[in-house]
């Protein structure tokens, strides 16, 4: 599991966590790796995608070296496609379900919790991203109540909820408010490395009820996908 260096035993069942970072800082990549790890343990993943079709997500993942099969149905990762409606596209081969009106957050909430209900405890629900949903939603107030409600429902179902948030795409007050409605936050960022290279970093910022490291870890790509390298100091 990618989070093993930070949390022994991974995220507990019934957790909601915000994954916050600027565009391009590796949030989707981390989410896909987390989905892959979960699927390898034999648990299901429900992945709502607002910024990519499921096919292009898998293509991206494979180009980063994440071991995703190139055929649908091989892994218990169920993509909910909330992107194709924008371009009027036919159903995506990798999509398990489709949302045609992501601006209706009540419906998104119902679709996700209804589908999560039948999965085993410890299964993972990923919403990539809340920022994408908020663009179609009528106002910010709905986003706040949506996050509060879906987080409580997924926790109650003993699943793990990951909410992807674009840092700096919203007022800082909204991000802080959404973070306060979930149980923990993971931050990602990109910094300049040696010789003009870039380093991708990840930090478990907080998680109620769990003792964990708060160091920044470097995200690396190995032959089994992403992994975290810790112990080094970064500003």
């Amino acid at each position: 599991m990618i989070l093993d260096p930070i949390l022994q035993g991974g995220l507990p069942q019934g957790t909601s966590i915000a994954l916050v970072g600027q565009p391009g800082s590796g949030k989707t990549c981390f989410s896909l790796q987390f989905a892959l790890d979960t699927a390898k343990k034999g648990l299901d993943v429900l992945y709502l995608s607002t910024e990519n079709t499921p096919s292009s997500l898998i293509q991206q993942a494979r180009s980063f070296g994440l071991p995703f099969p190139d055929q649908p149905g091989k892994l218990p990762i169920h993509f909910v496609d909330a992107y194709s409606w924008r371009i009027g596209m036919q159903n995506d081969p990798f999509a398990f379900n489709r949302i045609n009106n992501p601006g209706n957050l009540n419906e998104v909430n119902l679709i996700m919790t209804d589908q999560a209900k039948i999965l085993d405890p410890g299964s993972v629900v990923i919403i990539d991203s809340v920022s994408g949903l908020s663009l179609s939603a009528p106002d910010e107030q709905r986003i706040r109540t949506f996050v509060h409600s879906i987080a409580q429902r997924i926790i109650n179902l003993k699943k793990i909820l990951i909410l992807v948030l674009e840092d700096q795409a919203h007022d800082p007050e909204l991000i802080t408010n959404l973070r306060s409605l979930v149980q923990g936050s993971i931050y990602t960022k990109v910094v300049d490395g040696p010789k003009g290279s870039l380093s991708w970093l990840l930090r478990m910022y907080s998680l109620i009820g769990v003792q964990h490291e708060t160091k920044w870890h470097q995200v690396k790509i190995g032959k089994n996908g992403l992994f975290l390298q810790g112990g080094t100091s970064y500003e």
């Binding site: 802080t176 973070r179 306060s180 923990g184 936050s185 907080s206 109620i208």
Partner: peptide, 8 residues
Amino acid sequence: PPGVVKTT
């Protein structure tokens, strides 16, 4: 801020 042990 969120995550600073207020509840704890």
